[in-house]
């Protein structure tokens, strides 16, 4: 077995006095899709935000334990937050393109990193939009405001925007929950393609989606991991009674 690309150990997280995560231990393998499932409020988003330190912005958050990325503790004071977030990209639940042109959206991450070469930017725009499977739909409107596109297209533009900075891991928090089934299916196919080059960790409430696309699934409840295993095992023959109840729709 290869070494995990991301590894959380004994992770506790407090919002003020409220403990949202209790001793989470999870390892994620490279070039796999891992799904995080569990009832609302169980801490999936909170955990996901720990992995690229987006919780740092929330007042009163306290985190103990470690998260390692390629064996490096990302919470150590020497860590370069800018580099970390370029390596671990994030796609949000609501499509959130900037109110600029598609081109400016996709090139944003590169431009702030100092890339100016027009040819290089053009090439990356095309490459990332193709990877995100929206190139054919919007290639003639690259200079239109990104907000003018449909929700599904916007979400794929957001995925392309993350891909443009060449991360190795992509975190996704319910990326299809605001979309119609056809757009969702397109994004699922995109993710299956992306798996070759990226590691994907996805939060989803759609159990079918988890079973369709993920290699591994972690089941969260009340801030704890109940079970973490291969997706097929989790859905067919889970070890834990709670997991079985949840995946068979008996509660949650």
């Amino acid at each position: 077995m290869d070494k995990p690309i991301i590894s959380a150990q004994n992770l506790d997280l407090f919002y003020g006095d409220f403990q949202a995560l209790h001793g989470i231990n999870l390892d994620f393998d490279a070039n796999k899709i891992s799904a995080l499932i569990g009832p609302s409020g169980c801490g999936k988003s909170t955990f996901l935000r720990c992995l690229n330190r987006m919780n740092d912005m929330i007042d009163g958050v306290k985190i103990t334990g470690t998260v390692q990325f390629h064996g490096q503790d990302i919470y150590s004071p020497q860590v370069n937050l800018v580099e970390l977030r370029k390596s671990i990209g994030m796609v949000f639940q609501q499509p959130n393109p900037f109110p600029f042109s598609v081109y400016d959206n996709i090139t944003y991450g590169l431009r702030i990193a100092g890339v100016r070469d027009k040819q290089q930017l053009d090439a990356i725009v095309e490459r990332s939009l193709k990877q995100a499977a929206v190139w054919d739909e919007i290639k003639d409107n690259l200079y239109d405001n990104a907000l003018a596109f449909s929700g599904g297209q916007q979400q794929r533009i957001c995925i392309a925007r993350v891909l443009a900075v060449s991360p190795s891991v992509i975190l996704m928090d319910e990326p299809t929950s605001a979309l119609d089934p056809i757009s969702s299916a397109k994004i699922e196919n995109t993710l299956l393609e992306l798996k070759k080059d990226y590691t994907i960790i996805i939060v989803t409430h759609n159990l079918q989606q988890a079973s369709r696309i993920s290699d591994k699934t972690a089941f969260f409840m009340e801030g704890r991991i109940v079970e973490y295993d291969d997706t097929t095992k989790m859905f067919v023959n889970p070890d834990d009674k709670q997991t079985e109840d949840y995946v068979s729709g008996r509660f949650g």
Binding site: L81, K86, M90, N96, I112, C158
Partner: peptide, 27 residues
């Protein structure tokens, strides 16, 4: 300016100043 623009920018590796300059003020 919606908060999620700022989040998107920071998550792409922008610093706070870059976010203010290139996203918030522009939007």
């Amino acid at each position: 300016v919606p908060k999620y623009y700022r989040q998107a920018s920071l998550a792409l590796g922008a610093t706070k100043w870059q976010t203010i300059w290139k996203v918030v003020l522009r939007a």
